[in-house]
Amino acid sequence: MTLQRVLKISNMISLFIFIGVLIYSFGWYIYSPLSRPDLKDYENIASHLKQRIDNDRDVIILQPFWAERAREYIGDLNLLNPRYPLEEDFTQYENIYVFSVFGYGEKIKDGLSKNFKFIEKKDFGKLSLYYFKNERPQKIIYNFYKNIKDAKIRVLKSNEIKECRDFNNDRWRCGGPEWQYIGREILDIDGTGRECIWAHPLTNAIIEINFENVILGDYISGFTGLTDEATRYVQGSPVFMSVRIDDKEVLYHTNPNKIGAHRFTINTKDLSNSPHKVTFRISTHLDGVRHFCFYADTRLAQ
């Protein structure tokens, strides 16, 4: 092929790309403002939701996860905006609403329909609301996160047991540096702010979190996680969590040094409807940047 020909072909390609991008560019700038919802749409969808939502029973999933203007309108309704909603556990909720901006709800409709019954989609101007019904919601009997103040915390070292008795501002302090506490937090795990119990492990020690007289159901369900920031520490050790019921180990769970909420479920059907001692033991090899937390509750399947 001669250079003349190369020049001609490259010019032709360049011209087509240039014209194509120019047309696309104008098209996008026309489409973009037209696709945005009005504030009135937010008001309408919020007023619709406020009449229906019971925070203990229902949840609103925001799609896309970043479209947080919704928080201005829906008040303190139970709004979750997980990065990957199809990987989350919504089984405790009876009614699941997807608050959809820019049509993003459609992306998760089929996925949610596998576990929940799709009832309807309602449009509010350029916003949409998808309604799913969970016909067999799991009932939470005991929430370890909410009851952290009832916990008894101990730090076990080879020849020393230290009890943490100072509870203040949702935190059990165990002395030492400021990060050394057990308490309620909302932490960035897998790009999502999650309510969980901060339990930074210690090198050469085990953190023991005891809950007495916990009424068990069919399962203990929950997740562990390292904050997204912590997982970027490449030398970070895995964190281990052992769960014991009445001093008998029922789960040994490893949280790798990887981004994500690592879920676990413990079958407790044989022990349901009766009080038990539940113990979480947290440990690691090296505690550098182990910003670890966990969430757990006891549930009844229905």
Partner: peptide, 30 residues
């Protein structure tokens, strides 16, 4: 710096944004 948002939610005991600045509904500040 999103941990500061979560800290605010916990400390303020609510998650209600009173107003904000958005570009294409993506928040810049609340």
């Amino acid at each position: 710096y999103m941990k500061d948002l979560y800290k605010t939610w916990r400390s303020f005991e609510n998650r209600i944004a009173r107003r904000g600045v958005y570009i294409d509904e993506a928040p810049m500040v609340q």
